[in-house]
Amino acid sequence: MLLDFRHLGALRWVLVAIGLLVAGFLLLPVVFIVLLSFGSSRWLIFPPPGWTLKWYEAFFADPGWFAALGASLRVGLAAAVIAVVFGLGAALAMSRGRLRGAWWLHMLLLMPMVLPVVVLAVGIYSLALRAGLNDTFIGFVLSHAIVALPFTVIILVNGLNSFDPSLEDAAVLCGASRWRARLHVTFPSIRLSIITAVIFAFLISWDEIVISIFMAGPNLQTLPVKLWTTLRQDLTPVIAVASTMVLAFSLILLLIAAILTRRGR
């Protein structure tokens, strides 16, 4: 009866009230930042005296912001591709190969997710300084890929586990090579998992900030780094615009992921 809404009595209205408050609590900052980006107040006063698009004009007119946006997109795409390709290989090895240490391999691949990101950031920074990877595209991409890898491994292992391997074996028995069978039978069957993995890997890179703060330099900084450095100097409404861009992009990708998952059912 405690798990049946109709039999909860007065308690259900308490739960509903808390639910509404929490929903408001979760939505508030997101809605607020979007409204703020259209407000005309230079000092981020809310509610603003009027509405304007001038901060958007300022954002796109500033080559620094624009470059950061481009850097974020490029790094995100490259990191997503690497995390998914490497993750797919590892997932195949763990769910198909007869690997004795599969459990340990799985744990090892999930470790970067468990470690506090600041520890990883300082460690990678220390290494990158010696290897000359700081402020380079490849440094950004690989360090983002390591953060995204655990997520792609989880998604792809789940995808492979829900796909019957005997279908792939059947293709092989019919004369296809192992790789041909994978390419034409296995991968198309788990394409939904692959696309989801790409989206989430991109989102992780798109949002990555702690490692990026260390990686960034005069040559290359991603959008969150630019946001962070600007924030610490001056609270301008252009920050709200950049935040809205970051949010909008994430929301669109999440929506695509949700639609795909829905269609897959």
């Binding site: 390709v85 490497f86 290989g89 590892a90 090895a93 990883l120 460690g123 690989l142 360090s143 390591i146």
Partner: peptide, 26 residues
């Protein structure tokens, strides 16, 4: 199946160089 196991190598190298090595260095 041995060949399948080798597919984990790129991921392992990434973890080695961008996770285990930095942590050990630290």
């Amino acid at each position: 199946e041995g060949a399948t196991a080798t597919l984990a190598i790129p991921a392992l190298l990434l973890v080695l160089f961008f996770f285990l090595l930095p942590v050990a260095l630290l």
